[in-house]
Simulated scan of single mutants.
Amino acid sequence: MLKIDLVDQKIVRLLQRDARLSNAELAEAINLSPSPCSRRVRKLEKNGVITGYHARINPAKMGRNVSALVSIKLRRNGISEAQLFEAAIERLDYVTECSTITGRYDYMLRLHSESLDDLEAKLKTELAAIEAIDDMETTIILKSIKKN
């Protein structure tokens, strides 16, 4: 297991806040010279601590004004049902997150839609058409307080 020291933790926190920091800016922020800083970042990437750099998008600015969490229960808890469901979800661009969970439901989806009518249509036509699904429960997100 990779040992993550306090300097590595600070690097990760800073890059989570702003992945566009240059190596020089990052090195200055952690009080390290650029070469060792760069080596640490490469090591974090190589060992899978840092898995990528992404642009955080505001869904509303893209015309997706409604965000929701959808809890999904599969008909059967088997590998073939899970594979069928996961393959179907991969094709839906409005689903931005899909996680397996414990409890009454098997999966939690985060999705974004243009309007409540659009959300309803997606739930009733596209999601309901996935044969592996037994039950769905939708929660509309009113306001996101924190995103990392």
Rank of each mutant, 00 (worst) to 15 (best):
G78K: 10
N31P: 03
D18T: 05
S38D: 04
Q9C: 02
N148R: 08
L44I: 04
R40H: 05
E131N: 13
P36A: 03
L92W: 01
E97T: 05
A129F: 07
R40E: 04
A121K: 12
I101E: 04
S99P: 03
T96Q: 12
V7F: 02
V12H: 07
E120W: 08
D117N: 14
N47I: 06
A87H: 04
N58T: 10
G78A: 10
A88K: 09
L14P: 01
T139M: 13
V66I: 15
V7H: 02
S144G: 12
E126S: 10
D135I: 04
T139S: 13
L6M: 11
T100W: 11
E131A: 14
Q9V: 08
G103D: 13
V12A: 02
K122A: 03
R64E: 01
Y53N: 10
R13L: 10
G103I: 06
N58A: 14
A132Q: 05
I57A: 14
E120A: 15
S35R: 14
L119M: 02
I50R: 06
T139A: 15
G63M: 05
K46Y: 09
G52Y: 05
I145T: 06
L111G: 00
K146W: 00
V66P: 00
S71L: 07
T139I: 12
E120R: 15
I133E: 00
L21P: 02
I130K: 06
A87E: 11
V66E: 02
P34C: 08
I130C: 03
L109K: 06
N77F: 14
R40S: 02
R91G: 09
R91N: 08
Y107K: 03
